[in-house]
C-alpha cells in the first residue's frame, strides 16, 4: 500500500489503523490504514460495492444500529486520541462530534426551523434566542439562509431536492461538528444543485474536516485535497488528489480513473 507523505506536514484529525469491519461473517473492510487531515477535504472513490459507505459509516458508529456488525482495529480521533470504534466509547458521544450527510436527502417531516434545531434540542439546549441564532448561523453556513429566511416555519418537504440536501447539511452543522461525513451527497441532485453543494463543501473546509464518498471522479478532482481509492474492501492507493488523478502508482487506480472499469 503506497502512501504519499505530503499530508503529514499537516495536522491529522483522524486516523484508521488496521481497521477491519464485518457484517456478520462478511469481511467488508480489510485492514485499512488511513489518515484524514484537519480542515481538508478527503474523497473516497472506488467502484460500487467496494466498501466506501461501510468505511464512512464507521466514523459515526452507524453500524451500531444494526445487529451482528463488528469493528476491529481502531480509528483514532485527535487531539484527544480516542478510539472512535472502541467498545468503551459511547456511539452517542462520537455522533455528537462527527456529523453525517446522507446520500438521499432525509429531512425530518417537520418545519425547516425544527430540522436545523433538532441536534440542539437533542443536546438539551433550551432558550429560543440561542436556538434562533444557531439556526440562522447554520442555514447561512449551508448557503440556504437567503432562500428560506422568510419561510422557516414551512414544512421541509416543500423544498426542492437540492434545498433539502443543503437543509441536511445545515442540520449537521448546527451542532458544530469536528468532522463532517458526506455519503455521495449529490447523487440524487441535478447539476445545478450539485454545483451548489460542491461549492459549499469547499467553503466548509475552512472550519471543519470533511470526508466525502463519491462515485463521481470529476467531483473528487474538483473538490478534494486528498483522494483514497478503494477496491473490494481494501485501500489501494491514497495520496493528494492531483497525484492520484495525474500519476497514480497503482495499475488498478489508473484503470479506474481512466474509466476502464467501475
Amino acid at each position: 500500500m503506497s502512501t504519499k507523505t505530503k499530508q503529514f506536514n499537516e495536522i491529522i484529525k483522524a486516523e484508521a489503523k488496521n481497521l477491519n469491519f464485518y457484517y456478520g461473517d462478511f469481511h467488508a473492510l480489510k485492514g485499512l490504514d488511513f489518515k484524514v487531515s484537519e480542515k481538508k477535504v478527503t474523497a473516497l472513490i472506488g467502484p460500487s460495492g467496494c466498501g466506501k459507505t461501510t468505511f464512512l459509516r464507521c466514523f459515526n458508529r452507524m453500524h451500531d444500529l444494526y445487529p451482528n456488525n463488528r469493528y476491529e482495529g481502531e480509528i483514532l480521533m485527535y487531539p484527544d486520541e480516542i478510539n472512535i470504534v472502541g467498545d468503551n466509547i459511547d456511539p452517542i458521544e462520537v455522533r455528537m462530534r462527527i456529523s453525517m450527510v446522507f446520500q438521499k436527502p432525509n429531512p425530518f417531516p417537520k418545519t425547516i426551523y425544527e430540522n436545523v434545531a433538532y441536534g440542539l434540542r437533542v443536546r438539551g439546549i433550551r432558550g429560543k434566542d440561542i436556538i434562533d441564532e444557531r439556526v440562522e448561523k447554520s442555514l447561512r453556513g449551508a448557503a440556504l439562509w437567503d432562500e428560506v429566511k422568510d419561510r422557516l416555519h414551512e414544512h421541509a418537504f416543500n423544498m426542492s431536492g437540492g434545498q433539502q440536501q443543503r437543509l441536511c447539511i445545515a442540520r449537521a452543522l448546527a451542532t458544530d461538528p469536528e468532522i463532517l461525513l458526506f455519503d455521495e451527497p449529490t447523487s440524487a441532485l441535478d447539476p445545478i444543485a450539485t454545483s451548489k453543494v460542491e461549492e459549499l463543501i469547499v467553503e466548509l473546509k475552512k472550519v471543519l474536516t470533511i470526508l466525502i464518498v463519491t462515485h463521481n471522479m470529476q467531483q473528487a478532482a474538483r473538490i478534494s485535497d486528498y483522494t483514497a481509492f478503494m477496491y473490494v474492501g481494501e485501500l489501494v492507493e491514497f495520496g493528494d488528489t492531483d497525484t492520484i488523478f495525474t500519476a497514480p502508482t497503482q495499475k488498478l487506480t489508473e484503470e479506474y480513473i481512466t474509466g476502464r472499469f467501475g
Partner: peptide
C-alpha cells in the same frame, strides 16, 4: 417509517428514547 429517519436522528446524537419520542411516535 423509512429507516433514513432513524439514521438521521441517531446521526445527530439522539438516544433511542429521543428518537422514539421525537420521531417514531409522531410519525
Amino acid at each position: 417509517i423509512p429507516n433514513s429517519m432513524r439514521e438521521a436522528a441517531y446521526a445527530l446524537g439522539a438516544t433511542k428514547w429521543q428518537t422514539v419520542k421525537d420521531h417514531i411516535i409522531p410519525y
